[in-house]
Design a protein around this nucleic acid. Structure first.
Lengths: 64, 64
DNA sequence: AAAATATGTCAAGTATACTTGACATAAGAT
DNA sequence: ATCTTATGTCAAGTATACTTGACATATTTT
């Protein structure tokens, strides 16, 4: 799984901290997801889609 | 978060076991998700959308 | 240049997703 | 009525998502 969170975030011009606060997660969580340390939970993934107003597919690319 | 996995599965007329095998997870995992014991990982959620050929929103309803 | 803000990363802990194995009950087939 | 398949559930373990706290470095602001 990879994602384009970092670019989406930069388009909105918000910091990792801003995003973390908006979604009620830690900054490290955002950082780890952006840098591919792990994938978000479904809940957090959905929060991200709502925040950026995009679909799951527009953020995450799943590959077998 | 709630979902309509059980009804989607019955439409396709497959057992929890069939579905579990198709997605390479345990039957208990499918059962637990259907009965709201926990939510799937993003990876499993995406596998489910592909299996049923629907979007995330068509399976999962997120409510704050 | 100095101060402030943003990012990367580590370590150790908690929470939750998922596993295997087992057993009980329900429903469907012979 | 017996056999088989499907579902629900429990317990204990492993894997991964996420937390807090801390510190280093990079980037931006004054």
């Amino acid at each position: 799984m990879n994602n384009n969170l970092k670019s989406l975030r930069k388009i909105k011009n918000v910091s990792q901290n801003d995003l973390a606060n908006a979604l009620s997660v830690s900054r490290q969580t955002i950082n780890s997801i952006e840098n591919g340390k792990f994938d978000p939970s479904l809940t957090l993934a959905i929060k991200l889609t709502k925040y950026f107003n995009v679909s799951i597919d527009e953020i995450f690319k799943y590959e077998d």
